[in-house]
Design a protein around this nucleic acid. Structure first.
Lengths: 123, 123
DNA sequence: ATTTTTCGTTTACAACTGTAATCGATACGA
DNA sequence: TCGTATCGATTACAGTTGTAAACGAAAAAT
């Protein structure tokens, strides 16, 4: 029962994850801003697929539905991260950090934060 | 010209990346061990797709071809990592580390290695 | 010289994706 | 009450992916 999400589906989930309250299809369509400029029809298709995957739950509100996430963002992102790091770096984090070091992905503040994290881990 | 590889294609690339010498289709088929138990036909299909994506190059050797990678593993893995961290963590590494901390992905030796890395970065 | 094996290439086919139009039912506005 | 806007559901359709069989040419084996 391992749920995988496509890229587009993930964009929809992000909108749902971004609020506490359940949203309508129209809300979601409005929520996906920027690059992704989907028609309402497209958003509805994606919501259907997410329902089929049991990634979201519908709650009837009159004649329409309000959707809310069934899976937790942290769990999902955690699982995908484990998969990714396993696949690309044999499960080791250090080479990933080495890889991304020197890029914008790792500013001075980031370095400090990571060090604090590690310090806490060692206790 | 952004090359993306499917999961199966990546498995093939891993075999090619694992040796210095170019390999035949049969070599690759033998090389993918474990889970992936593909027929030779499957490997040939994947090699064709990799050729189309210009991820590998063929060198004629008599009546058959020897294949070698056109893209570098480090570049590919780096690009995918950037994409992944961008997508899942808004480009920040620290939350990834926080996420995977406490799992097998981060043993004591790993922590030490990462600290060394960061120390070197700060200089 | 003929059969068999081995190549690369072409074709297959179902599942998943991205992106949407259409449809049937219902609700709302005039 | 009669059109019109709005829902969710169904259908569409091309591209990608996983997995492979079929095909034609060439080489190797007998």
């Amino acid at each position: 029962m391992e749920i995988r999400l496509s890229d587009a589906e993930l964009d929809v989930m992000e909108v749902l994850w971004a609020t506490t309250s359940p949203l309508t299809a129209t809300d979601v369509a409005d929520g996906v801003g920027g690059e992704r400029q989907w028609s309402l029809a497209t958003v509805k298709s994606l919501l259907s697929r997410l329902l089929a995957k049991q990634a979201i739950a519908p709650a009837k509100d009159g004649r329409r539905f309000l959707y809310s996430p069934l899976i937790d963002r942290d769990s999902y992102v955690g699982a995908e991260s484990r998969r990714f790091v396993g696949r690309m770096y044999g499960g080791k984090l250090s080479p990933l950090i080495a890889q991304l070091a020197g890029e914008e992905a790792l500013g001075d503040d980031d370095v400090a934060e990571i060090e604090a994290l590690l310090a806490r881990l060692k206790s």
